[in-house]
Amino acid sequence: MPADTAAANGPADTGTTLFSARIREASWSRHQGLDPSADADAIKAPGVFDRLFDGSLSVGDYTRWHAQQYFVYEAIEAAAARFADDPVAGPFVFPELARVPAIEADLQFLMGPKWRSGIEPLPETRAYVDRIDAVTADWPGGYIAHAYTRYLGDLSGGQAFGKAARRNYGFEAAGASFYEFADIKSPKAFKEEYRSRLDGVDLAEADRARVIEEVLLAYDHNGAVLAALGEGLDRNPFEPKVVAAICHHMNTDHAADTLVICRGAGGRRDAATARMTGFDGEGADFAVVVDGAEAAVRVEWAAPLSERAEVRPEIVRLFTESKATLLDEARES
């Protein structure tokens, strides 16, 4: 959840306005754009936030949203480890903010022990993660911008998300532990301390302006991920736990068969390796490695599927037909 913000009344005077206030003012419109209650008169399809709050977001779509957040926080917390001793970014690395262990516990609860096999970053999530990785490679301000945007949001509006998830799905702890900060006794006091550190951070004005721009970019990336998730709401008839189990089985026990499918039905004759990354009622998704680079492959089912029992026969068909195609091509060459 991006950071909470305060309304702006025109451009800030950088000479007198505190840095934390400048960030909040600059990002107000972005925050409003993500807030489902920001413009009650706007005509738009209900998104992830709207559906969570009105109770119509399925637990499957909630899980898929949770899974995308995993990749974002994994990148931010990898950067935190690099900057822990940095004189500029280090003061913003708080162990009590770390979310990855909680997300992992939630996903195991929601998807089972094979959860990691059933999640894959959306292209929009991958772009977000790539940006975090790039901007935190050697710039402390990059970490500050992305950590601020996510964590202060989690301590603010994110708390309402946790309450809604617990109310809608009956979670007690697991499933929504991502929103619990057991080691932060007073979120209000913590946020005040965080903003105080922002106001005193040792960054030149050019770097402060760059941090503000990075915060805005973080909002844009988050909005793109939410939009992509919104387009897929209610479209996958298979529970994430089912997807994880089947992907794990294919990638662990039938890796060679998966490669055959991607080379044949997937059209990637040059694939060196392949793994199944997910599926829905219309088809299956794979990732192949070609010349050292990973690429996505989508293979459509022969007809729409809606039951778990239908998946295995369709995968067998894809493998059988792919193998025959590849053998025929080998004979002709």
Rank of each mutant, 00 (worst) to 15 (best):
P87G: 14
G158V: 01
P304F: 07
Q159T: 14
G292Y: 10
F109G: 13
P36M: 02
Y169E: 11
D270F: 00
F109E: 15
A105R: 14
S322C: 07
P11F: 01
A6E: 15
L318S: 13
A80Q: 02
G200A: 13
S333E: 15
D202Q: 14
V48Y: 00
V72Q: 08
S58M: 12
M1F: 02
E329R: 14
I103A: 11
F109H: 15
V243C: 09
L97N: 07
A89T: 06
T149C: 10
E172W: 12
Y62W: 03
T258D: 06
A182P: 06
R131Q: 08
F71C: 02
P313E: 10
A38K: 04
I23A: 03
P46L: 01
A78Q: 05
R197E: 08
A255C: 08
A218E: 01
E321I: 06
L198H: 10
E310F: 07
V260I: 13
L110C: 03
S333N: 15
A309L: 13
D86Q: 08
G223L: 01
A67K: 07
S56H: 06
V299D: 09
D220C: 00
D199E: 07
C262P: 14
V135S: 09
A284G: 10
N9Y: 13
A67R: 07
C247S: 13
R99S: 12
T136K: 05
R51P: 04
G292H: 11
I212E: 01
S177P: 11
E294W: 03
L327H: 15
N9E: 15
